[in-house]
């Protein structure tokens, strides 16, 4: 383990790692809820993420984890409650505006722009930061070239985090599965997020790939000084890197705390990990 576990300290609205206590939390959900017709998919979801925290969201299938990511990224509008990004309410914002406020995500079922080269996938993520006008592009103004060149360099640099620079001109759809998952993370990082939401980043990975992913998530957090929230079923990954974990069942939080607390919470063991001595033990 690269680092000793950080203590969680209480702030208004929840707990965050001690080192982030001096800065305002980057992401907060307050009494968040959404109904689909008569079905309540998520209810009274409260959640707070420190500036450089790695948080985890776990729970059985259908518990509402991805629905929460969809709420946080404004794919769905909440029926109740609100979301604050850096203290700013996201209600009434457009989806792309919420991304530009600092929320970026990956998808459980990979959603890359498959026909486009790897590099273009990353450059699309950088749209919001490139300010040149169309006239500049058409007239081939120096400002266009400068920005475009800088963007390309930055994109290649981001790809190098996962050692993918050499694949820059390969169509994203022809990458192997693991590389596609990594590219999704790079593309999300390219949007310059404050919080990176990873939806089952280790799905379909073998143990050594998962271990590498774990290192990379930490590296991303340390390099970019951002928060990461992940949905994951791989308990080694979750318990290994998450500082705060929320457990969801039937759309409601049933437990919150450090990995140790979650591991020893009888309710969690009952609802999620199976009964003591069961096959699903961790």
């Amino acid at each position: 383990m690269a680092k000793s576990k950080e203590k969680l300290v209480p702030v208004e609205g929840g707990v965050i790692p001690e080192r982030d206590a001096g800065t305002p939390p980057v992401l907060e959900a307050r009494h968040l809820g959404i109904d689909f017709g008569g079905l309540t998919a998520v209810d009274d979801f409260n959640f707070i993420i420190g500036r450089t925290e790695i948080g985890g969201l776990i729970g059985p299938n259908g518990a509402g984890k991805t629905t929460i990511f969809n709420l946080l990224t404004n794919v769905y509008q909440p029926t109740r409650g609100k979301i604050l990004v850096g203290g700013v309410d996201t209600r009434g914002k457009k989806t792309y505006e919420v991304n530009r406020m600092g929320i970026a995500r990956t998808f459980q079922n990979i959603r890359l722009f498959k026909a486009l080269p790897v590099l273009d996938n990353v450059l699309i993520g950088m749209q919001g930061q490139m300010q040149y006008r169309l006239a500049g592009a058409v007239l081939r103004l120096p400002s266009y070239w400068k920005q475009e060149k800088a963007a390309r360099e930055k994109a290649l640099e981001l790809l190098s985090i996962f050692g993918m620079e050499s694949l820059a001109y390969t169509p994203a759809g022809s990458l192997p599965y693991g590389a596609q998952r990594r590219l999704e993370i790079v593309r999300a990082l390219a949007t310059g997020p404050k919080v990176l939401l990873l939806d089952e980043p280790a799905a379909g990975m073998n143990p050594s790939e998962t271990a590498e992913l774990m290192e990379n998530i930490r590296k991303i957090r340390d390099t970019f000084q951002i928060a990461v929230v992940l949905i994951e079923h791989d308990m080694n990954l979750v318990m290994g890197i998450c500082e705060g974990i929320a457990v969801l069942n039937y759309g409601q939080i049933i437990a919150k705390g450090t990995p140790e607390e979650i591991r020893n919470n009888p309710q969690v063991i009952e609802a999620y990990l199976g009964r003591k001595g069961g096959a699903a033990g961790c």
Binding site: R105, L112, I124
Partner: peptide, 19 residues
């Protein structure tokens, strides 16, 4: 690039900050 991204997956493009 935004055009190509939107034509492939409008939802994902929006989530990557494409207007």
């Amino acid at each position: 690039r935004a055009m190509r991204a939107v034509s492939e997956d409008m939802g994902a493009a929006q989530l990557m900050g494409v207007n």
